[in-house]
Simulated assay, not measured.
Amino acid sequence: KRDVYVITNFEPHHNHQLVTPLESPYLRCNRVVRNSDLAQAVGMRRALVRTCQTYEYMVDQCGGYLNVGFQIKDLYNKLDASRREILLDGDTEAALSYLKAKGAMDPEFFCKFSVDEENRLGNLFWRDSTSLLDYIAYGDVLIFDSTYKTNVYDKPLVLFVGSNNYRSTVMFGCALLQDETFETYKWLLETFMASMKDKKPISILTDGDEAMRKAIDDVFPMSNHRLCSWHVSRNAQNNLKDDELVRNFQACIWEPFALDEFEKKWE
């Protein structure tokens, strides 16, 4: 009733053998590459000293493998993570510089980004003048497609697309997001609206993500939100184990039944 845990039994004996004091430095929880160690390893790498030689030098400095505080694999992993962080930061600067140059050549080009608590790139949205013209002409139906972290930056990629009068796909805008929360999707939709002169779509197609649905209801309360038939069909294939049932279900989606005929098929 007080929402607290109560200890009812204590078993003092371990169900597994404990490590010896000589082995404890090799436990994952006790292996830490400090910033000073990383700085020393980076400096020695710039002096063309191999990482394995750097590790042996650190071992000698500390007086043995038990005192160094980490294994050579931990040092390799830390150096690799540090190098990737530098590369990503460099890619961010290059991307923003490229988009700034595009804006200088295209007066209707639009780009907006946000930063996280560590002042690193969080969300990034952009679209060009062609996307604006296409959206004004064909933006009554908006397809909101999110590709889950299939890029090297581990960020969700969102594409705003539609269809023109030739039934060809047209791009309305692109975004890289820091996560897939309601707050992030709301920021994205509001940014998209600002870039498109506040023209609201009549209908929106999505894959059914819950956070995305809430953001759409908040930003586009008057728009019709529908699920993409391709995602619905794929989910049916993944979850229905009866092939005939899958075929009948897909027929209800794709075939042009009259209303009473559809109701009969659905039942």
Rank of each mutant, 00 (worst) to 15 (best):
D3T: 12
Y5E: 04
V6L: 13
F10G: 02
F10M: 06
F10E: 08
E11Y: 00
P12C: 02
H14M: 08
H16V: 05
V19Y: 09
L27P: 02
R28F: 06
C29M: 03
V33E: 09
V33H: 07
R34F: 11
D37C: 11
L38I: 05
V42Q: 12
R45A: 14
R45E: 06
L48F: 03
L48N: 13
T51Q: 13
T54H: 07
T54W: 12
E56Y: 03
M58W: 02
V59R: 12
D60G: 08
Q61N: 14
G69P: 00
F70D: 03
Q71K: 08
Y76S: 00
A81E: 13
S82G: 06
D89Y: 07
A94L: 14
A95M: 10
Y98T: 04
Y98G: 01
L99E: 12
A101G: 06
G103Q: 09
D106A: 11
P107C: 03
P107N: 12
E108M: 11
E108A: 10
F109I: 01
K112P: 00
D116V: 10
E118S: 14
E118N: 15
N119W: 03
N123Q: 01
L124H: 10
W126R: 10
L133N: 12
D134M: 01
Y135A: 08
Y135Q: 07
V141Y: 09
S146D: 00
Y148C: 13
K149G: 03
N151F: 01
V152M: 15
V152P: 07
D154W: 01
D154R: 15
K155P: 02
L157H: 11
L157I: 08
L159W: 07
L159S: 15
F160H: 05
S163F: 08
N164H: 11
M171G: 06
M171I: 11
L176K: 04
L177S: 04
D179R: 04
E180L: 04
T181N: 10
L188Y: 05
L188N: 09
M193K: 07
A194W: 01
A194V: 09
D198P: 06
I204W: 03
L205G: 01
T206A: 07
T206S: 15
G208I: 11
D209T: 02
R213S: 14
I216C: 10
I216R: 05
V219M: 04
V219Q: 00
P221W: 03
S223N: 02
S223L: 01
N224V: 07
C228L: 04
S233M: 12
S233K: 02
S233E: 10
N235K: 13
N235C: 05
A236Y: 00
L240T: 07
L240R: 00
L240P: 02
D243H: 07
L245M: 14
Q250P: 01
W254L: 06
A258H: 10
E261D: 12
K264M: 08
W266I: 09
E267W: 02
